[in-house]
C-alpha cells in the first residue's frame, strides 16, 4: 500500500455505500428474528400492534410462554427425543463415514476407483421418496428413532470433504508408523484420528444439524406420539389454530398463543445457535474443500 492513502470523493462515496448496504442487510436479517423474540415474551394483557410489541421494554416482558412450554410434558419428551436423535445420529454417522472416507483417501488401495464410482452413482442418481420409504419400512425401522438418522447416516458430500482432509495429512507420518510395524487400523486410530479432531467436529455438526432439523423422516416413520422429536411437535403447535391441547396448555400458562408459538420456535433453535459458533469456525474451510478440490 502507498504510504499516504488519500481518499478521493468517489472512494468516500463508495465506502459510505458499502456501510449503508450492510446496515440495510443487517436490518433485513435482524427484524424477523427480533420480532419473533419479542413476540415470545409478549404478556397476556398486551394491547397494541406488532410494532408496539417490538419496542416493548424488557421489564414488561413475560416468561409465561416459556414456563408453560417447559412445564409441558410433551414438550419435554420431544426435546429428549430430539437430543437422542442428535447424539445417536452423530455417533452412527461418524462411525460409518470415517472408514469410508479413509479408504477413499489411500491412493494405493486396490479398487479405490471402483469404490469411488460405487458411492458417486447414488449421489448423482436420486430415485426419490417411495423406493426409500419401501426400504425403511421393510427394514422394520417404523417407530424407531433410527429411522430419522439411519437413512442419511452417510452423506457422500461429507465423505468427500473428510476424504480431502485425510489426503492433506502428510504421507510421511503414516509411512513412519507403518515402518514401526503399525497395522492400517492402528495408523487410523493413532495417527489419523488424533489429527482429525477439527474435521470430525465439523462433519459431526453438519450431520447433527441435519438430524436435529429433520421433520420429514420423523413424520413418515414415527407414528408413536411418545417418539416424536421437537420439529414434529413444533409443527403441530404452529399449525394449530385453536382447538387442540397446546391451546389449552396456554390457557393455564396465561400466555397468548402467538407467544407460545414464538417461544417454541426459539427453544427449538437454541441448540443450533449453541452449535453454530463451532461450525462457523470451520465451515469456510469445509465448503472450500468440498467444492474446489473435490
Amino acid at each position: 500500500m502507498a504510504s499516504v492513502i488519500r481518499l478521493t470523493k468517489s472512494d468516500r462515496m463508495f465506502n459510505a455505500f458499502v456501510v449503508i448496504s450492510l446496515l440495510i442487510i443487517f436490518i433485513i436479517l435482524f427484524v424477523p428474528i427480533w420480532s419473533t423474540i419479542t413476540l415470545s415474551f409478549r404478556p397476556n394483557d398486551f394491547i397494541g400492534t406488532a410494532l408496539d410489541g417490538m419496542v416493548l421494554p424488557p421489564w414488561k416482558w413475560s416468561l409465561a410462554a416459556y414456563k408453560s412450554l417447559l412445564g409441558n410434558n410433551s414438550f419435554v419428551k420431544a426435546t429428549a427425543n430430539s437430543f437422542r436423535i442428535f447424539f445417536e445420529g452423530i455417533a452412527t454417522a461418524l462411525i460409518l463415514t470415517t472408514p469410508l472416507a479413509y479408504a477413499l483417501s489411500i491412493k494405493t488401495l486396490p479398487g479405490r476407483k471402483l469404490l469411488y464410482v460405487f458411492i458417486i452413482i447414488p449421489y448423482l442418481f436420486d430415485v426419490g421418496l417411495v423406493p426409500n420409504y419401501l426400504l425403511v419400512t421393510r427394514l422394520g425401522l417404523t417407530n424407531k428413532l433410527a429411522a430419522v438418522y439411519l437413512p442419511g447416516a452417510i452423506s457422500v458430500y461429507n465423505t468427500l470433504i473428510m476424504k480431502s482432509f485425510f489426503e492433506g495429512i502428510p504421507e510421511e507420518l503414516k509411512e513412519s508408523a507403518r515402518i514401526d510395524g503399525a497395522s492400517e487400523f492402528k495408523v487410523l486410530m493413532r495417527i489419523i484420528l488424533p489429527l482429525s479432531k477439527p474435521i470430525m467436529l465439523t462433519i459431526g455438526l453438519y450431520y447433527g444439524v441435519r438430524f436435529w432439523n429433520d421433520f420429514f423422516n420423523a413424520m413418515l416413520y414415527l407414528n408413536d406420539s411418545n417418539l416424536q422429536p421437537l420439529p414434529i411437535l413444533l409443527r403441530n403447535i404452529l399449525l394449530s389454530s385453536g382447538m387442540n391441547e397446546y391451546v389449552e396448555a396456554s390457557a393455564f400458562g396465561e400466555a397468548p398463543i402467538e407467544a407460545i408459538k414464538a417461544a417454541s420456535v426459539l427453544l427449538a433453535a437454541i441448540p443450533m445457535l449453541v452449535a453454530y459458533p463451532f461450525i462457523q469456525k470451520y465451515f469456510v474451510k469445509g465448503t472450500m474443500l468440498g467444492s474446489i478440490k473435490g
Binding site: 472408514p99 469410508l100 479413509y102 479408504a103 469404490l115 458411492i119 430415485v127 423406493p131 427394514l139 447416516a153
Partner: peptide, 25 residues
C-alpha cells in the same frame, strides 16, 4: 490393505443397503 477393507466393509454394506436397494426398488 486387508484391515482397510475390513474397516470399510460395514460402511460399504450400509451403502449397498441404503443407497442401492432403493435403486432396485
Amino acid at each position: 490393505h486387508k484391515s482397510i477393507y475390513l474397516l470399510a466393509s460395514v460402511s460399504i454394506i450400509y451403502f449397498a443397503i441404503f443407497k442401492y436397494v432403493p435403486i432396485w426398488n
